[in-house]
């Protein structure tokens, strides 16, 4: 894949290009946690950026662009259309580079992979991006109550998967 060198502020006069150059890595990390796979994360982010690109002139506040892209990314990922088009849900981690990335915390990766997409996205938005619950609801396109439900169920499932290890660590400690 041909790539351009990225220099914040030096990628031309288009403010959207400057925004992409500056926030690409942060967005990619969020996408990676949501998808669980580096390649899927890139696809998802690039798809979201391409969707937002034609509307970039309508984004008046530069600070709003990141939320707009992130929202597009999350909603695209959790949409039924994308789920049926791209893949079937599985709790098994995919082969390839993503496994290598996941080696650092394979248990967390497995636990995240076992969550339904909306719960997983809610957890990432809340506990990685540190967004308030109300904003998580906005990003997911649901009510605050629904967002709280996703978060509660996601946390419960993660706790069940991760707590035994913590207890084991505690005993060893």
């Amino acid at each position: 894949m041909k790539r351009e060198s990225m220099r914040p502020g030096g990628s031309g006069s288009d403010p959207f290009d400057e925004f992409v150059a500056a926030r690409y890595q942060a967005l990619l990390r969020g996408a990676y946690l949501i998808t669980g796979d580096v390649h899927d994360a890139r696809d998802l982010l690039h798809d979201a950026l391409a969707r937002v690109y034609p509307k970039r002139s309508a984004i008046r506040e530069p600070g709003a662009a990141e939320g707009y892209v992130r929202r597009t990314m999350v909603r695209t990922h959790v949409s039924r259309w994308r789920r049926t088009r791209r893949e079937v849900l599985t709790s098994v981690l995919p082969d390839g580079p993503a496994v290598q990335e996941a080696e650092r915390d394979g248990q967390l990766a497995a636990a995240l992979a076992g969550l339904p997409r909306r719960q997983r996205a809610a957890v990432v938005l809340r506990y990685y991006l540190d967004l308030p619950v109300a904003q998580v609801a906005v990003e997911l396109g649901c009510s605050v109550t629904t967002a709280k439900t996703h978060l509660a169920r996601g946390l419960k499932a993660l706790r069940q998967e991760l707590e035994p290890a913590r207890e084991l660590v505690g005993r060893e400690g």
Partner: peptide, 14 residues
């Protein structure tokens, strides 16, 4: 977990 992920944006392609 996310810290190891990085890359530069393919601006022209985007």
């Amino acid at each position: 977990r996310a810290a190891g992920i990085g890359g530069s944006p393919p601006l022209a392609e985007l």
